[in-house]
């Protein structure tokens, strides 16, 4: 599997660390416990296209949102997380 990093180009998956589902959004601190439960535990876990966070640990150290098919490992694209509006990306980490 090779991930097309917007900064570094197509790189081997071994350079990246996985964080998981990029559609999850950390609730506001004042939210109720159900909102936090929903953030931490349940997952859609789709068999098909999946928006997910990867960290380019062995490269530019940017957080990326990668759109990947979990059935085939085909990657449709990757964008820098803060541009993709990923949760917490403004602060530099998910």
């Amino acid at each position: 599997m090779r991930i097309p990093c917007p900064h570094c180009g197509e790189r081997d998956v071994g350079e990246f660390a996985y964080y998981g589902d990029a559609t999850k959004r950390r609730p506001d601190g004042a939210s109720d416990i159900e909102a936090f439960f929903d953030y931490v535990y349940p997952r859609d876990n789709p068999a098909g296209p999946h928006r997910e966070l990867w960290y380019h640990l062995g490269g530019c150290r940017a957080w990326l949102v990668v759109n990947r098919d979990t059935r085939t490992h085909e990657i449709f694209g990757a964008e820098v997380a803060y541009k993709a509006g990923a949760p917490g990306a403004e602060a530099g980490s998910p």
Binding site: G14, D21, E52, R71
Partner: peptide, 16 residues
């Protein structure tokens, strides 16, 4: 391998 997958096959870093 450490990422979501239904492919029933993995990648080279884990093999190495």
């Amino acid at each position: 391998d450490g990422y979501n997958s239904y492919a029933q096959r993995g990648n080279l870093p884990v093999i190495e």
